[in-house]
């Protein structure tokens, strides 16, 4: 090189990973699940786009949120969707949620030595009609939970959720114990508050918010009627139903 860089060679290795910011979160109710994510995609201090969806509808009762390295995330979602399509062709039905969870763990662990650099949260309705959330680490460790935050603002959101969803550090009055599951309306308020807080204090969070709501078969849309910007995504209004709520977040 004319700049003489060959005379004292530098050790430089191609880094196949980057971080693209953003945050995702999911909460399970008794007969519904909520999966949400912001829509900002960034690299370093640059905002690449204000709308890059991180939450993906897989089936009429399963939604997957993916956060971390966006290229890996998109490829992973693509492969999961392909496996679900193959399952549909083979079995003439959608894969159950717990099976999708195990599929995701297997697919992630399959890349144990060159991992997908992504945190996954799977939300939806279990075969018994209960709301369920599964959260994964990049190499496939997973667990069914009631609520989980992941991504850039995980440290900001998760303790808030512990407090508001699990009622951690709150003593219930003797005559009225804490509810095991919150109503949909309360959950949506907590999700929106979590993201406005995260947007306020974390530079990689903002622009837009997409909240997917999955309702168990036969459950009314109660809790959604007062919400603006709701769009139904389900193919069969008689079965489990999927809705998406779109909101603006601060863009600075």
């Amino acid at each position: 090189m004319p700049d003489g860089s060959f005379s004292h060679p530098q050790e430089r290795q191609f880094n196949p990973y980057t971080e693209n910011g953003g945050t995702i979160l999911a909460i399970a109710g008794a007969d519904f699940s909520v999966v949400a994510g912001d829509t900002r995609q960034s690299e370093g201090y640059s905002i690449q786009t204000r709308y890059a969806p991180k939450v993906h509808k897989l089936t009429d009762r399963a939604v997957l949120a993916v956060n971390g390295f966006a290229a890996d995330g998109n490829m992973f979602v693509k492969k999961v969707k392909q496996r679900l399509e193959w399952y549909r062709h083979a079995h003439a039905k959608d894969m159950p949620l717990r099976a999708i969870a195990r599929l995701i763990q297997t697919m992630l662990y399959g890349q144990r030595f060159f991992p997908y650099y992504v945190y996954n949260i799977l939300g939806g309705i279990e075969e018994d009609g209960t709301g369920a959330i599964y959260s994964f680490d990049p190499v496939g460790s997973y667990e069914r939970e009631t609520c989980r935050a992941a991504g850039a603002a995980m440290a900001l959101v998760q303790p808030f959720l512990d407090n508001q969803i699990y009622f951690k550090n709150q003593q219930a009055p003797a005559d009225s114990p804490h509810p095991v599951h919150l109503p949909l309306q309360d959950v949506l308020s907590i999700v929106i508050d979590s993201f406005t807080s995260a947007t306020e204090r974390h530079i990689e969070v903002g622009d837009g918010l997409e909240i997917y709501v999955i309702l168990a078969k036969g459950r009314s849309a109660q809790g959604l009627e007062s919400i603006r910007n709701v769009q139904e995504m389900s193919t069969n209004p008689e079965g489990d139903r999927v809705f998406v709520i779109r909101r603006e977040l601060k863009k600075d």
Binding site: P16, T18, E43, R50, A52, A70, A71, M75
Partner: peptide
Amino acid sequence: YVDLLGTTYQA
């Protein structure tokens, strides 16, 4: 947009 990492986005 596409880059050497396979990162994509539209705007």
